[in-house]
Design a protein around this nucleic acid. Structure first.
Length: 427
RNA sequence: GGAUAGAUGGCCGAGUGGUCUAAGGCGCACGAUUGGAAAUCGUGUGUACCUCUAAAGGGUACCGUGAGUUCGAAUCUCACUCUAUCCGCCA
């Protein structure tokens, strides 16, 4: 959520940003928000004056002469009544205001392409050579069947649709990719951390998942807990309410966790195979840095570079997509998606999503740092990016590296994690 | 799941109804001292918001969270959350 003072002082700019993000003035009435804020401020001023009077009266009772006390108590009681009335009004308005603010999206970067939906996304570059097979390439499902790498039909009977069970060398490959990426991130200075997949409700508001997309997350009512769709959820709240010293920044986390998504809005899409499943594993890059756009944009580029290198290490052709204002989620200031080439679908599919959130999440989690220069407390900026997410990335991986006999080549960077140059028994 | 104890400022810890913006200590910052350091001494040491302002200042709230009692709550009542230890169960 943005700063209300900023909204008041830059109303036109805020309205422009909201429009770019696809919000109509009816959906988010900024003028109404500002009006509400002014009412709250006025109420605060008057109710605080009442509180002051009440405190003074109360404090005077102890030193007052006994015969004066009943009088003062009566006065204080009267002021207390008035105070309570105003306080109730204030609480109601404050609640309304807080709810409104929770719905306020981040404003997009002026650099972001403006567009209504994913049709406005812009390809910034394509890297790697799309393979041309001199045989009929198989899709990843066929490759898994040939090589005895999966139990897709059977696991659907056990665990329902959009689940997966992969085995043998492919199962090992899945874990090897995470090991490779964790090693890389550790070398980049990240703290490797494994985090839970369950979360209380508050972190979902902190991340900005709520109140926007409740139907996409698993909820366990008996325990009042949610299943995490990404380690970002956990890492974003890990340091909540802290005031970090500037010397601690940047905080870099490489968080590994199983991730769970209901995929409620994806009916009919990618129903077969490993592209879109309810449970998957993700190693997430998460950055906490100082609150200048220059600083967080620098880290945004760095995160993008790291994930590009990961795709290059996996020798996957990919494109860098800059996500347009209308297709970005509410928390985001600027976003790149990386998409790897999937031969069987003849298109690029998303494997990484790299976002600069600026201070939007930090305001929700109350995560701040003390600046060495001015000695003041500032909200931090947060950023997140996929490190590697499996099994989805296995789809472009085994399809791009397949041989005619159905075996799959392992690129050099992964070989030390797999101890082989090729996997699969083939036909 | 059962039992017990507990939750106070960056940390330790005192405080069981009225100047508590919380004693004391540690830490930290600055200064004095020193050739330099240690030790010592002195001063300072939260956050948010309101108001006012050139600056300073004034005020309100915050002692796990929420509600209640009271003229007045860190302190009393209720509910909840979390932590520790023991028992049970268990990858």
């Amino acid at each position: 959520m943005p700063d209300i003072k900023f909204i008041v002082e830059n109303t036109a700019l805020v309205k422009e940003g909201l429009q770019k993000k696809g919000y109509t003035p009816e959906e988010l009435d900024v003028d109404a928000l500002i009006k509400l804020h002014k009412e709250i401020t006025a109420l605060k001023t008057s109710s605080q004056a009442l509180a002051e009077e009440k405190n003074k009266l109360s404090n005077s009772i102890k030193s007052a002469a006994p015969d004066e006390r009943p009088n003062i108590i009566a006065q204080s009681k009267a002021v207390g009544e008035k105070f309570k009335q105003e306080q109730d009004q204030l609480d109601a308005k404050q609640k309304e205001f807080d709810l409104f603010m929770l719905k306020m999206p981040n404003l997009p970067s002026p650099e972001s392409p403006v567009g209504p939906d994913d049709s406005g996304n812009v390809v910034r570059r394509k890297v790697g050579k799309i393979p041309h097979f001199d045989f009929e390439p198989r899709d990843h499902i066929a490759l898994m069947e040939i090589n005895d790498w999966s139990e897709m039909e059977r696991i659907a009977k056990v665990s329902g649709s959009r689940t997966y069970a992969i085995k043998n060398e492919l199962a090992k490959l899945e874990l090897a990719m995470h090991m490779m990426v964790l090693d890389k991130l550790r070398a980049e200075g990240f703290t490797v951390i494994t985090v839970p997949s369950v979360s209380k409700e508050k972190p979902l508001y902190g991340q900005g998942y709520l109140p926007f997309s409740r139907d996409e997350v698993y909820y366990m009512p008996e325990d009042d807990l949610y299943l995490s769709g990404t380690a970002e959820l956990i890492l974003n709240s890990l340091r909540a309410d802290e005031i970090l010293s500037e010397n601690e920044l940047p905080v870099l986390y490489a968080g590994f966790s199983p991730c769970f998504r209901r995929e409620a809005g994806a009916a009919g899409k990618d129903t077969r195979g490993l592209v879109r499943v309810h449970q998957f594993m993700k190693t997430e890059q998460f950055v906490i840095c100082k609150d200048s756009i220059a600083e967080s944009e620098k880290w945004h580029q760095k995160l993008l570079q790291i994930s590009e290198e990961i795709l290059q290490d996996l020798e996957l052709p990919y494109q860098v997509l800059e996500v347009c204002t209308g297709d970005m989620g509410a928390p985001k200031y600027r976003q790149y998606d990386l998409e790897a080439w999937v031969p069987s679908q003849n298109c690029y599919r998303e494997t990484h999503s790299c976002s600069n959130i600026t201070d939007w999440q930090a305001r929700r989690t109350n995560l701040r740092y003390r600046d060495n220069t001015d000695g003041k407390v500032h909200y931090v900026h947060t950023l997140n990016n996929t490190g590697i997410a499996t099994p989805r990335v296995l789809v472009p991986f085994i399809e791009n590296h397949q041989n005619e006999d159905g075996t799959v080549n392992i690129p050099p960077k992964l070989q030390s994690y797999m101890n082989v140059t090729k996997i699969g028994k083939g036909v």
